[in-house]
Design a binder for these strands. Structure first.
Lengths: 114, 114
DNA sequence: CGCCTATATTGACAACCGTCGATACATCGT
DNA sequence: ACGATGTATCGACGGTTGTCAATATAGGCG
């Protein structure tokens, strides 16, 4: 596969995993969570949790702050904003009447295939 | 990964690919596109385009309608709606006052480790 | 200093994914 | 019927991903 330089793809890919989406949702619901608490909720081993948190960190989704022995994770508003903007960009087929401008090809078989 | 029964994960995973996100964006911009046009924009072979379109179809993102020789694809409003709702659910750390209620464990910077 | 706990990293493995060539299927025009 | 074109499926290959056990790192406490 090619390089995923597109930051939006990176953002989506980071969220497109059951465990990581669960982490994001829990962070959204509770605001700030100690890393040790994810091991309980996600039914995966501690290294796996750490791995997913790293993926989310690298994608910009979360930030971790060390407080003593523990590390508290929280959502980064920039990522949430980018995610929402991305969602806003994908719009359902608006009633744009003109398929006309589409490379000259008409939407219907009014025109025969050449 | 074991099983992604979560439909939201399926939706995200389908969108989390450079080629497929490009398809979704183009569909959003132009409304309805012939499958043959994706081969040009995405720089991948025709079987690959067909594969990605199938992934998007299975995830509920797009629907294809045959018109003669061609198949025209368009975004499904339900998928767009679900995506937006999902994006709306992920909220940045609200200024929820008390980390105090969190499982009895204090943020523990009572002793500021600074 | 040691010991304990929390988190990260490493290494290895199986499963999955994106890609393409070859091929099959479908539809239209001759 | 045939050939031409658009689309889907198959089979295979290489790269990526999620997972865990083992280990390493780091900080707090006595």
């Amino acid at each position: 596969m090619k390089r995923q330089t597109d930051p939006d793809v990176v953002l989506l890919q980071a969220a497109a995993d059951p465990t990581r989406l669960a982490i994001l949702r829990q962070l959204s619901a509770e605001g700030e969570i100690c890393a040790c608490d994810f091991t309980a909720c996600c039914e995966v081993s501690q290294p796996t949790v750490s791995h997913h948190l790293k993926v989310l960190r690298d994608a910009g989704w979360v930030a971790g702050e060390r407080r003593g022995t523990w590390i508290w994770y929280s959502l980064r508003p920039e990522a949430v904003g980018r995610f929402r903007r991305l969602a806003g960009e994908i719009e359902p087929t608006q009633s744009r009447p003109a398929g006309a401008l589409r490379s000259g090809r008409q939407p219907l078989d009014v025109i025969q295939p050449r």
